[in-house]
């Protein structure tokens, strides 16, 4: 019976992690309604500009292979 958990769109998931299981969210004060499951990357970048927007957090940037630090 268990249906797969809702996910962010792959392009969004590449850059952001959702702090909740993706769902519909309304922000009445700002007149915004969006669905984390269908959010595009452009929309996500716009939302990240809202100061108290806590539903997405940027993924830490992957460090490049640290070849110089390990080689002697």
């Amino acid at each position: 019976m268990a249906s797969p958990l809702p996910q962010l769109q792959p392009e969004v998931a590449e850059k952001f992690r959702s702090t909740v299981i993706p769902c519909r969210i309304e922000m009445p004060r700002l007149g915004l309604t969006f669905d984390l499951r269908t959010l595009t990357l452009a929309e996500a970048l716009e939302l990240m500009k809202i100061p108290d927007f806590t539903y997405l957090v940027p993924r830490p940037k992957r460090r490049k292979a640290a070849s110089s630090s390990t080689s002697k």
């Binding site: 909740v20 993706p22 769902c23 969210i25 309304e26 922000m27 009445p28 004060r29 539903y55």
Partner: peptide, 10 residues
């Protein structure tokens, strides 16, 4: 009046 964020059930 509730003007905060409304999070729907996933």
């Amino acid at each position: 009046i509730y003007a905060g964020t409304v999070k729907y059930k996933a």
